[in-house]
């Protein structure tokens, strides 16, 4: 079963050109572990009951066809149809409710060392890291978290309802305009996971995703420190074209005059695992394609097409963006 799910997940990943796990059944987080156990308990319980009912059906249809006395039939209905389901459902409900505090550990969330603010937008994710010490760090379409540490996520939406979900790490949580929802996650294994938007949010809903990267705490801290300062390539010549063609009025790139806040922050876009909110591999070619015709790659996105620019300029901008490590 697990293998089948992995196989289908793998083929989907190949189709989307994205490398990373997304199965609920391969948990890599404390919450997802509980959800996976709940799934297997429910599945095996359901399978046992189903087999029992089918066996009883076959038994009475094939092997024991004599009529039951009315009283014993009533007794079977009372015990098998009323008492057994009531007690079983009561036990399953109690088990699921007992899991709830562990799945939504809000009590500890206030003491989390790291808070990540994620805002859903049509059709990308704005991400701000707020460590307990140090300045906030802005990013987009990628969430990195330290393994073995509890992280608090503050979830918001700027336009319509989105839903935040990293299947191998935990359950879903909606992002609702005007509300701030909280989610707390703890990765237990390092890896790259895919997070889809889990609530229909418009034309490119299916193309709205992000990658979640669980890293060793030390590597995470040095990564975060590097993200807080402008990328080394930020001052290079390709950046001049970026600014001249007006990209900076929507995008922010630290260390340059690009100060727009409408589109994703591109300060370290070259270091991300994907571009276009989880749909394209981060290659120069993909970046150039996105700049030229974002409307083809992501219908309904607010970024206009820039295919009127000389191809050489698009290439230079793409190369410069890839260099923002």
């Amino acid at each position: 079963m697990g293998q089948y799910f992995s196989l289908s997940a793998a083929s989907l990943l190949l189709a989307s050109g994205f490398a990373g796990a997304r199965s609920v059944l391969e948990p890599a987080g404390a919450e997802a572990q509980q959800i996976a156990i709940l799934f297997w308990v429910m599945l095996s319980g359901g399978a046992v009951i189903w087999l029992g009912v089918v066996a009883l059906l076959l038994h009475s249809a094939l092997f024991n066809r004599r009529r039951l006395a009315e009283q014993s039939a009533s007794r079977i209905i009372l015990w098998g149809g009323v008492v057994f389901p009531a007690v079983t459902l009561c036990a399953l409900l109690a088990y699921a409710l007992w899991l709830m505090p562990a799945l939504r550990p809000f009590a500890q969330a206030s003491s989390a060392a790291l808070r990540i603010e994620v805002t859903g937008r049509q059709f990308w994710w704005e991400v701000v890291y707020r460590p307990s010490r140090g300045p906030p760090v802005a990013s987009a379409n990628e969430i990195r978290l330290p393994v073995g540490e509890r992280v608090e996520l503050t979830l918001k939406s700027a336009d319509v309802i989105h839903s935040f979900w990293i299947p191998p790490l935990g359950g879903k949580m909606d992002m609702i305009p005007g509300r701030t929802n909280r989610l707390s996650l703890m990765a237990t294994k390092s890896g790259i996971f895919r997070g889809p938007c889990a609530e229909y949010c418009g034309t490119s809903h299916a193309l709205m995703a992000f990658s979640a990267v669980a890293m060793e705490p030390e590597a995470f801290r040095s990564w975060l420190a590097a993200q807080a300062i402008p990328a080394e390539g930020a001052g290079a010549s390709g950046g001049a074209l970026f600014l001249r063609h007006g990209c900076g009025s929507c995008h922010f790139v630290a260390g340059t005059d690009a100060r727009g806040l409408i589109g994703p922050d591109l300060s370290h876009v070259g270091s991300r695992t994907t571009v276009g909110a989880g749909i394209l591999p981060n290659t120069e070619d993909a970046v150039a394609r996105f700049i030229a015709r974002p409307d083809l790659i992501k219908p309904g996105s607010r970024m206009p097409a820039f295919d009127m620019l000389p191809p050489g300029d698009i290439r230079a901008i793409a190369a410069w963006l890839r260099g923002l490590q």
């Binding site: 409900l93 109690a94 409710l97 007992w98 709830m100 809000f106 909280r182």
Partner: peptide, 23 residues
Amino acid sequence: SGLSFIAVIFTAMPALFLTGCIR
């Protein structure tokens, strides 16, 4: 009455496990 009895138990059960308000 039997149905309502079970339903009332199911309704009250979360209070056994939840120890605080979410958010």
